[in-house]
């Protein structure tokens, strides 16, 4: 069931098109991530859905109601859409209790019970309720912001890079906590992030955004393994792109003859492999011969540059091993099919 539909949304800031025709469908209860480099327009998109800005063209339909079109729009406070901003955006003049209860309209006892329940939900100590936001750590502020947004039982939750201001360790933990809470509550979620790992880990549906447009929309596995173009492939992770001669589902490439995921195509093309498909063996085995041109030790992994026969080079992270050094001959093996860019 489609819950949120965006149709050809456009938004112009001066001469810059922040959004240049965005279409998206989100099903109820799902998690969608919009991922793209900074400045690609993803925050603008979120602001349009939240109702903080109006689109120049296009429409937003949410739960069967037209929220915005080119002529009119429902104001933010009547949308029932929650948002958690990058820095939490807690009200500095209010205590944690007042922040969480900000959007609640109920008598004191009901309100307090609900606040206590929300604190428990996001895993915070009720002793913090009397504090001011500046007495909390970044991760705690983010949880309060989530509790505050959840208080009104929104049908859609918008997350605007809510984890990017946190330290690496805290980040994964907070993301896990937020995901669990939202899943348990069954709330449809739209996450905006520039971190592809976060997007892939979080979402059921990933939309890769570039210069105000969606380059690709699909499941995390689909966009990762079968990206539409080289730029999308490179944005979502390390990609080894090879020139190839393709026929009958097989590609003749510098890494030998590889199966490809397209049996109909015939002719010259570029194919892509993800680093986890590649094995580097020192003592023979199946595959093509290559030379380690350079090796940088980075702890558990090593960053190696590998040269194939006629000067085709690619780089790769492999688990570190003591015996491997620059100049060694190795055998490169490939598992699974290569992806073909058409």
């Amino acid at each position: 069931m489609t819950f949120l539909t965006l149709t050809s949304l456009r938004k112009q800031y001066g001469s810059v098109a922040a959004l240049d025709g965005i279409d998206l469908s989100v099903t109820a209860g799902s998690r969608t991530a919009i991922v793209g480099p900074s400045g690609c327009g993803k925050t603008t998109l979120l602001r349009l859905v939240a109702g903080f800005d109006a689109p120049d063209e296009g429409g937003i339909v949410f739960a069967g109601q037209q929220l915005a079109d080119a002529r009119s729009q429902v104001p933010a406070h009547k949308r029932g859409i929650g948002i958690v901003a990058q820095d939490g955006c807690l009200f500095p003049h209010l205590t944690i209790r007042q922040n969480i209860g900000f959007g609640l309209e109920a008598e004191a006892s009901v309100k307090n019970a609900r606040i206590a329940q929300l604190m428990d939900m996001v895993g915070l100590d009720p002793a913090m309720l009397a504090r001011k936001p500046d007495q909390l750590s970044g991760g705690q502020q983010q949880r309060v912001a989530l509790a505050r947004a959840l208080a009104r039982k929104p049908r859609l939750m918008l997350l605007d890079e809510p984890f990017s201001a946190l330290d690496t360790g805290l980040r994964a933990a907070t993301r896990k906590a937020v995901t669990d809470v939202l899943t348990a509550a069954g709330i449809t979620t739209l996450l905006v992030t520039h971190d592809q790992g976060e997007a892939l880990a979080f979402a059921d549906q990933v939309a890769v955004m570039r210069a105000g447009k969606f380059a690709q929309v699909g499941s995390p596995r689909e966009v990762y393994s079968r990206p539409v173009d080289v730029a999308t492939a490179a944005f979502l992770g390390e990609a080894i792109v090879l020139p190839a001669e393709v026929a009958d589902g097989r590609a003749q490439s510098p890494l030998g003859v590889l199966p490809v995921d397209d049996i109909a195509y015939r002719g010259k093309a570029e194919i892509m492999l993800r680093p986890e498909q590649i094995t580097v063996a020192q003592n023979g085995g199946d595959g093509v011969f290559a030379t380690v041109a350079e090796i940088n030790f980075c702890g558990p992994i090593s960053d190696v540059r590998i040269t194939l026969g006629d000067a085709f080079t690619f780089r790769l992270d492999i688990p570190s091993r003591e015996t491997l050094s620059a100049g060694d001959r190795v055998t490169i093996g490939v598992a699974g099919a290569a992806h073909l860019f058409r």
């Binding site: 903080f52 406070h77 009547k78 949308r79 009200f91 959007g103």
Partner: peptide, 11 residues
């Protein structure tokens, strides 16, 4: 941003 946030909380 604080004003936007308050609007999203139904004010």
């Amino acid at each position: 941003a604080l004003e936007d946030q308050a609007a999203s909380l139904g004010l």
